[in-house]
């Protein structure tokens, strides 16, 4: 019951209105329900407007990214042409003419000019080799990936064979901790090149021919956040982890610069090395990540994580 009291000078009036209690509960319940539905609709509408705005912004960002990609692609094509032809051609000619000069009867390898020409030929060969590697490195970008089941152990053995490394030269211990039904899908060619480069790198610093490189490669799984570039975005997925452990007691200091182009072991190192930059580029193309670490044994570890597909 609801009551209203109205007072006059000479008296008062009481108004009373009532409703059966079960009816009242029913009406109140219906009112609350309607309020809840209306509130939910308002919230959903706000959410939808926010989502729409986000989508529009994303679309705009996507357009900018596509323009950037298009610019990069055209630059890439030009660079490939320069590397594969424009820079190679003058080098080829320098080599040709210095060879001709050397063939001249008056010149031999003992004269200053002869020695100078020989040096020029050697440098030209080095630069040509460098350009070829740069072309391969640059060419990785446009490579179409072919995802097939990859057997890591087979890839390691094949890489070892490709590098012409005998068991006397390199001792590889392989540990597979993957569950038997776990399939790793990736680009077989790139995985093979990756191991080839890692093996070459591990082997390349040994001046002593009698030395045996000790490599341990283990494979297992690890859960990682798949978003590495997006800030505050998280989605955890199981990834393949390859630990390539080089126990050759080399004087490494792990750092990210190890993956830079032309990284040098020390000041005395005169070679322009591509290997690890090449490895990093391959891993990036396979949507993975490569880092380094050392342990108490002072061995260098390359830790590679790759998505299962």
């Amino acid at each position: 019951m609801n009551f209203t009291f109205e007072e006059y000078n000479d008296g008062y009036t009481i108004y009373a209105g009532g409703i059966q209690i079960n009816q009242r509960n029913k009406f109140e319940k219906a009112l609350l329900e309607s309020k809840k539905i209306a509130q939910k609709a308002v919230e959903e509408n706000v959410e939808l407007i926010a989502i729409r705005n986000t989508l529009l912004e994303t679309q705009h960002q996507l357009e900018l990214q596509l323009r950037k990609l298009s610019r990069k692609e055209s630059f890439q094509r030009e660079l490939s042409k320069v590397l594969s032809h424009d820079l190679q051609e003058p080098l080829r000619k320098i080599n040709l003419f210095s060879s001709r000069l050397l063939e001249n009867e008056d010149l031999n390898h003992e004269t200053d000019l002869g020695r100078g020409l020989l040096k020029i030929s050697r440098f030209v060969e080095q630069v040509r080799h460098l350009l070829e590697k740069l072309e391969q490195y640059n060419g990785l970008e446009g490579k179409a990936l072919e995802h097939v089941p990859v057997n890591i152990e087979e890839a390691v053995l094949k890489a070892k064979m490709d590098c012409g490394l005998s068991s006397e030269k390199v001792n590889i211990v392989f540990e597979n901790h993957l569950e038997p039904d776990k399939k790793f899908l990736s680009d077989n060619r790139l995985v093979l090149i990756l191991f080839r480069e890692l093996l070459v790198h591990a082997f390349s610093y040994h001046k002593n021919d009698d030395y045996t490189s000790k490599i341990k490669i283990s494979v297992d799984t690890i859960t990682e956040n798949v978003f590495t570039e997006l800030k505050d975005a998280y989605k955890y997925e199981e990834c393949l982890r390859i630990v390539f452990e080089d126990n050759s007691n080399q004087k490494y200091i792990p750092s990210t610069s190890i993956f830079d182009l032309f990284w040098k072991l020390d000041a005395e190192d005169t070679e322009l090395r591509f290997g690890l930059a090449y490895c990093k580029r391959i891993v990036q193309l396979l949507d993975g990540n490569i880092t380094t670490a050392t342990n108490k044994k002072q061995s260098l570890k390359f830790i590679i994580t790759l998505p299962f597909k």
Binding site: T223, N225, D232, A233, Y234, K235
Partner: peptide, 9 residues
Amino acid sequence: NPARYSNLN
């Protein structure tokens, strides 16, 4: 971040 802490990782 709810997405980050939705997993023990």
